[in-house]
Amino acid sequence: MNSRQFAKIAKRVGFWALIAVIMVYAVFPFYYAVITSVKPSSDLFRVELWPSTWNLDNYAQIFSQSSFVRAIFNSIIVAFSVVFIALLLGITASYALGRVRFRGRSTVLLVILGVSMFPQVAVLSGLFEVIRALNLYNNPAGLILSYTIFTLPFTVWVLTTFMKQLPMELEEAAIMDGATPWVTITKVFLPLMWPAMATTGLLAFIAAWNEFLFALTFTLTDTQRTVPVAIALLSGGSAYELPWGPIMAASVVVTVPLVILVIIFQRRIVSGLTAGAVKG
């Protein structure tokens, strides 16, 4: 074997080793959470890469807590409502921003970009007041309202970039036929926008599902919480005896739907993320 061949083989081995490292780094924490969640509590504190004995006690325990089941239910309601509202307001706004030239358009875009950079904590006290005034404190509806602050700007931004890419001719034909803007949106653009809406909807869903700060601040009782807060507040008697088994089981339960979504829709998610940032 000459040195050139050797170098080539070494390069291939190095390349695959790097891929292996990346794979392990990305997946291992989740894998470790899964194996921790199926360990019986007596085995919990033995470090091992494969559980020697396993059962589903931790899952049985978290699902027997009505507050956790309730939190999952709340999370589902909140995430779906947020997606629906963001898409509804986003598609009309993106038509205006992507297809019509008017004075003040760049100002509106700048405002949207500005809102998406808001630190959530900067509106915390003001939003708290609004939510209380609307009588939505300690109510998932208050979360649905407050989540529009981060899902709406993003949705509008991405949908606008997609809207812009559609050919002019489509709309010109509709205008020539005398179609009103509303008819143009619903009959011409909506059918073409489904892929973009699926992408942004997916990203909005993940953002709403994962949100923590507002959910922690605007809800008070166990029955009104969403899953991230429920998991963060799962605790034992003291900081030193956290119930790691149930915490990991709950973590796996809320993460599995997301992991499945990511694996199925990875292409869409990638295109949505990059459209939001690169084109921005």
């Binding site: 990346i22 794979m23 990305a26 997946v27 924490p29 989740f30 470790y32 959470a33 921790t36 993940i206 599902w209 994962n210 923590f212 899953v227 991230p228 807060v229 998991i231 963060a232 790691w244 915490i247 990991m248 973590s251 809320v254 993460t255 997301l258 992991v259 979504l261 990511v262 694996i263 990875q266 998610i269 990638v270």
Partner: peptide
């Protein structure tokens, strides 16, 4: 690529708990 995306999709709370463990 799908594997690399997983950490991004996991809720921050959950990743914090997983790493805390």
């Amino acid at each position: 690529r799908a594997a690399v995306l997983i950490p991004w999709a996991i809720p921050t709370i959950v990743s914090a708990q997983m790493w805390a463990w």
